[in-house]
């Protein structure tokens, strides 16, 4: 019985690690694709959030956008926010490796994508990511 318990625990652990690895590798792959080119409107020299959403995405409107707005109020002119309608710009969404919405990219002052969030990211998480991206 102990052997079976241990085996099941091991299976659950391996499955959890595999899922985490897939999620992590997906993030790395997405960041690699994001080097392809920044959307128009990006101003070099300032940190940016590039935020992909669609008109039908409710969590984009109700959770993600308020979180980004809270961050913008906190950081003011030090942060630029570029919102892209992924349904209107599928080419841009594909280039950036967007798989779902909302997806947010943190861009540092040199124009490099250094973090990606495939899903809702609350303001605290975005703030920590932006802080990491600053020199």
């Amino acid at each position: 019985m102990n052997t079976e318990l241990f085996s099941r625990f091991l299976i659950a652990l391996v499955a959890a690690v595999v899922i985490w690895l897939v999620w992590f590798v997906l993030g790395l792959w997405t960041l690699r694709r994001a080097k392809a080119g920044l959307p128009e409107g990006y101003v070099p020299g300032r940190a940016a959030i590039i935020y992909f959403s669609t008109p039908t995405c409710s969590s984009c409107r109700t959770v993600q956008r308020p979180a980004i707005e809270a961050l913008r109020e906190c950081l003011g002119g030090a942060l630029q926010v570029l919102e892209v309608d992924a349904s209107a710009r599928p080419d841009l969404a594909s280039t950036w490796g967007v798989l779902s919405v909302p997806t947010t990219f943190i861009i540092d002052g040199r124009g490099r994508a250094c973090h990606v969030n495939h899903g809702v990211a609350h303001s605290e998480k975005l703030f920590a990511q932006i802080k990491e991206s600053l020199p």
Partner: peptide, 17 residues
């Protein structure tokens, strides 16, 4: 549930998109 809770990933949003 874990992806939603810890990663913010929403299956419904993914399917809808």
């Amino acid at each position: 549930a874990a992806l939603n809770a810890f990663g913010g990933f929403c299956l419904g949003c993914f399917v809808y998109y």
